[in-house]
Design a protein around this nucleic acid. Structure first.
Lengths: 223, 223
DNA sequence: CAAACATTCAATTAGTTTCTTGAATGAGAA
DNA sequence: TTCTCATTCAAGAAACTAATTGAATGTTTG
């Protein structure tokens, strides 16, 4: 680690960033932040970490230049430092998927029915949206929905799904999305809808990727 | 790390891959492999690691699905498992550069003259190549050059540079490239050429990125 | 100013990772 | 078979990282 070798010193910089990504809790925090900026307390709650622990992970992410913090009254709000970080996470996901069969295995084990894994690509979804063939539902909490969502999407958080089945067209195809490829909400929604006889699919990735691709989004009050 | 939480289990898979990237020696090995497949001994020599240590790092890279090994007689030859890994390393580099000023600082400190850092993009290089405005030199060792290089490039490894200055057109602009953005060879070549009065620039990135972008390459005997 | 609150800091403990050394494989050559 | 050589394995010491706890900081509110 001595800086006598400049090449090694540069690799050490890259390694430090990669090392920061090399922790499940920190990746989870990044995924939460890919959605919307949030306070420490919120992040701790959503990730299941203690507040102190979250704070420490967040500071590491900040030291690596991956997130930024700003103060808002009593709270400190964190957010991604750079939209490109979503691309980096995507690349990491792709490589991991391709190379480590275990990821798929874990998914399969959890979601028993292989069927519910069928995913629609963004491109395909856009085509079907244009043709008016599809109802798009956003399974994230109302707060995240309000901050931005796919055009024409219906906000249907998981907890409300059963109560609001009537609002869904029984004939039309339904595509559900959520925070990203491995956000469980949309998987669960699809499984539930299929059980009730709906033609439901999952969007291959989620809202952050949609927005990062420069596709149109809507902002609005909660549905 | 119990797998009771499937979401966490998935993030743990991603984290394991990222953690494998989080080590300067391993990133250096990957950079060497981005060029051409190589034996353990060769990698150890080029990276300055002991053989046993290289072997262990390589096995970690293999476990993470980043490299693959095949046997060739007495030796084991390693290579990148997947061309996309170059993209991942590129994304990591971009984020690190943008967010950690230290990288540039280290570079600056080493290459004193800020001037020699001026880089030409791939796109710009292609334009100038088409117009016949530029001499392209490849500063990598002959072996790597033979395995693939930019069309029309002249192989001029650093050690031969001084001896072969005559072969270079004194008027025309020269663009040097090597193994990637942080390969020191092309920096040194540019510094040397400028000292001698040539109009020399560095290609922003290197051969692996060129090839990964699907641009044409030549294979040939050593120049 | 003092109380309440969100976040951060500091110190400890437990668990990983790194590099080194020397011995063990396993393939090819004699 | 036996020798040689490239690579891998195994074990141990040193350095680093994560999570926990309780105290400290700094902001808003009364």
């Amino acid at each position: 680690m001595s800086s006598e070798n400049p090449k090694r010193a540069i690799f050490e910089q890259f390694a430090a960033v990669a090392r920061t990504l090399g922790s499940a809790p920190r990746l989870e925090l990044l995924e939460l932040l890919a959605q919307i900026d949030r306070s420490v307390e919120e992040l701790a709650g959503l990730s299941g970490l203690t507040i102190a622990n979250s704070s420490q992970h967040l500071q590491q992410l900040r030291r690596a230049g991956l997130v930024e913090a700003r103060r808002d009254g009593k709270r400190v709000i964190y957010g991604l430092a750079d939209r490109d970080i979503i691309a980096l996470l995507g690349a990491l996901r792709r490589i991991t998927e391709r190379n480590v069969g275990a990821v798929e295995t874990v998914l399969k084990r959890y979601f028993r029915e292989r069927d519910s894994l069928e995913a629609v690509s963004r491109k395909e979804l856009i085509r079907r949206m244009r043709a008016g063939l599809v109802t798009v539902i956003d399974t994230r909490p109302a707060e995240e929905f309000a901050a931005g969502h796919l055009p024409g999407a219906l906000n249907l958080p998981l907890r409300q799904l059963k109560r609001r089945l009537r609002q869904l067209p029984p004939e039309q195809e339904i595509v559900a999305y959520c925070r990203g490829a491995y956000c469980v909400l949309s998987y669960e929604a699809v499984a539930e809808l299929r059980k009730r006889g709906f033609k439901a699919f999952r969007l291959e990735d989620g809202y952050p990727e949609w927005r990062a691709a420069g596709l149109p989004v809507e902002r609005s009050a909660t549905a």
